[in-house]
Design a binder for these strands. Structure first.
Length: 191
DNA sequence: CCCTGATTCGC
DNA sequence: GCGAATCAGG
């Protein structure tokens, strides 16, 4: 990915809006938060409108050394860090950039608004109803409500980073449809 | 643990 | 210039 004028502009805007580096990275897609921070500094627009605790001259990295400083494969690190970033659509609805990777069909179909709590779960489903701004990598991206409405939220429940949904919503989202995928073992015979 | 920005320095 | 690795902290 490269820092095109448009991406730089968006970066500036989002940074000025107070988004965190990781949030901006997610919005932009194809970059890590490190890249964003690095760019921000290079653009000389760090600091933002904070109480500027700043100053705090950083000590040089004492150890250095670091033999295997970097992974051999250039993209390896980025890949592990941002497997989902590539999935984000940079183009189009910016506000939905962090939405789970789903086809239009999927968006229309599940109508997750009314979450069926019929499934047996050990714990009650806890949807934190977070906004896109509050979404983190380890938060469930299960949409709640109408994406076109201002009250649109995401579940926000805990999930392992890289996973789209929390355990509960993953169970809903990834229900095998039996008649599809027959190449998969229908069920485990015994034990 | 999760996260934040800041810095260094090989590329 | 770029950004991963690292640091320092909340």
């Amino acid at each position: 990915m490269q820092w095109t004028d448009e991406r730089v502009e968006l970066l500036k805007k989002l940074w000025a809006d107070g988004l965190s580096a990781s949030q901006i990275a997610a919005e932009l897609g194809g970059v890590t938060r490190n890249a964003v921070i690095g760019k921000v500094h290079r653009l000389g627009l760090s600091g933002r409108a904070k109480s500027a605790p700043s100053a705090a001259p950083r000590l040089r990295k004492p150890t250095a050394a670091s033999p295997a400083h970097r992974v051999s494969a250039p993209m390896a690190a980025a890949a592990t860090r941002a497997p989902q970033s590539a999935a984000y659509a940079t183009r189009g609805a910016t506000a939905l950039a962090a939405a789970p990777v789903m086809e239009a069909r999927t968006i229309a179909a599940p109508a997750p608004r009314v979450v069926p709590v019929q499934l047996v779960e050990t714990q009650p489903i806890v949807c934190e109803n977070v906004t896109i701004m509050e979404l983190r990598e380890n938060m469930c991206r299960w949409p709640l409500g109408d994406p076109s409405q201002p009250d649109f939220r995401f579940c926000g429940g805990r999930c392992t980073p890289g996973q789209a949904y929390c355990a509960h919503h993953a169970a809903i989202a990834y229900q095998p449809t039996n008649d599809r995928r027959r190449d998969r073992r229908p069920n485990v015979p015994t034990h």
